[in-house]
Amino acid sequence: MQLEVNITGKSFESAAGKRHDVLDNVTFTLNAGEVGVLFGPSGCGKSTLLKILAGLDGNYRGHVTRSPGMRLGMVFQEPRLLPWRTVEENVRLAAPDVDDGTLAALFEVLELSAHCNHFPGELSLGLARRVALARAFAIEPDFLILDEPLASLDNALAGRLRDQVATLVASRKMMTLLVTHDLDDAVRLGDRLFFLSPRPARILHVETIVTPRATRSEPEIDEIKRQLSQLDLANM
């Protein structure tokens, strides 16, 4: 499984007929088992890029090649659960073939077991986020897209959820693309970091972290973060 991204431009036309460029030149490939991180300022066009990669927006210049039959799992910025279905029903709608054991194990890891029969309206944002994660993992995706899954959660919760995501990502061989604006998340979860410019987005810098995710030590993580924060992105 592989994803080849070769986008040469994407623009919107405003109601007044004015053209707004959102994406400039975004080219990269992602291989099975690899976690790519899109890192950039807010409003730089990351969500637009994700929509294109997810096949939700076909109106762009360039091409995106996905391996045939690739199964996509997506976690949107907002949980996007169906309020009229319980937690379990929400997951099963997207993943009708998931067996009970797999689902139970998934709920266990994400600490959702007690909430199977709750409706989304009864859940906190953190819980709803985890349901969205469960839904994306339950379909056993070949390609997983995570759009800021840890945003606007308090630190302790975000940390726990990040560990849960790391566990799940490590347990299967799939491509993952994570969007974040938290450098710590990027360095802990990613194999390759793509630094994006402000709108219209282009890739300014690619950082490959050689040490496997599971064996990265705290000092090493701190050192990578220190080096990356010294990048002079504004002049690239």
Binding site: G55, L56, L72, G73, M74, F76, R80, R135, I145
Partner: peptide, 10 residues
């Protein structure tokens, strides 16, 4: 947003 979700999950 829910339409997109349904499309993304095929």
């Amino acid at each position: 947003a829910l339409d997109e979700m349904a499309t993304a999950f095929a």
